[in-house]
Design a protein around this nucleic acid. Sequence first.
DNA 1: TATTGTTATACTCTATAACTATA
DNA 2: TATAGTTATAGAGTATAACAATA
Lengths: 174, 174
Amino acid sequence: MSRIRSSKTVAEPPGASLLPVPGLDYGVLDELLGYALRRAQAALYVDFHRATEGLDVSPPRFAALVLVGRNPGMRQGLLAQAMGLHRSGALRLTDWLTTRGWVERQDDADDARSWGLFLTAAGKRKLAEIERRVRAHDERLMRGLGDRAASLKADLERLAATAAANNNDDGDKR
Amino acid sequence: MSRIRSSKTVAEPPGASLLPVPGLDYGVLDELLGYALRRAQAALYVDFHRATEGLDVSPPRFAALVLVGRNPGMRQGLLAQAMGLHRSGALRLTDWLTTRGWVERQDDADDARSWGLFLTAAGKRKLAEIERRVRAHDERLMRGLGDRAASLKADLERLAATAAANNNDDGDKR
DNA sequence: TATTGTTATACTCTATAACTATA
DNA sequence: TATAGTTATAGAGTATAACAATA
């Protein structure tokens, strides 16, 4: 089998932050944990893009490279599961990375329906460079938070687990 | 002047979470504050969608309703600024809300280029219902975090400010 | 000349549905 | 019959560029 698909550069991120505009009334938004998270996410997204400028990568593409790099031979379906995507999304992502020459599909000896995913030599080099810059970007953020960085990260992980658990329950909304 | 545009329902959110898949090696992703934020955001997004099921709303649409509701007569450009959008994005968002009958444009007496944005009576009712559910959803998350919720929210706000400041600086990446 | 909003277009990210090949 | 991947299509969310009207 073979795959060919078009290649384009990364789209520009939202240009501006969601930081409060002085004089505007944000009502309930200022009270919500969810909106605080959204503001932080928006700011980090712009910052990530800046830190990886010229490398033609985006957060999901970076995550996919790391996952394939650390788990060579993983199937597309597992990549989808790890990234919370539909399998058609993992397909497109893999297509894009393949077209760039960073990832390659190899036939899986155990199951003729599946691919094994692997980084190419170019993909390994690219990932090393991206990872270096992303680490620097993240460490800069951590430094800005000082000793709160570690507890923030732990609380975010707990929040993610809590919200995901709600999603599986029927919830007690009423 | 008048605006007409098509109306569609809210798209489905990503179906699954980004919670760690047992046995997979996430490499640097597990160390990054940015990826922890991404995981939390993904989980909250699904949870938000569940909490507002049937109301035909999304996080940006909700934020726009709140902002217009609290700042009646605000211009589209200001909405764009508050939400970190290009003005063409604020146009589309406003179009959508107008088509739903929740927001209306009125001529601005001070500047013939501008609109003033206002909630309609239906928009006010709709917002009240959405806000009730979003508050309940957010409070459920906060309860899950116990006494750490307040500090988490404060740290997220500080993170957003820090990252946004980096984006304006030249940064010290090298 | 700068600003507000619009139109046209395009790209990322993600989904659903119907399909093929294999298990 | 179920699973892995594919194809085709669609929609949200966002951008850029060129434009008109007004300031």
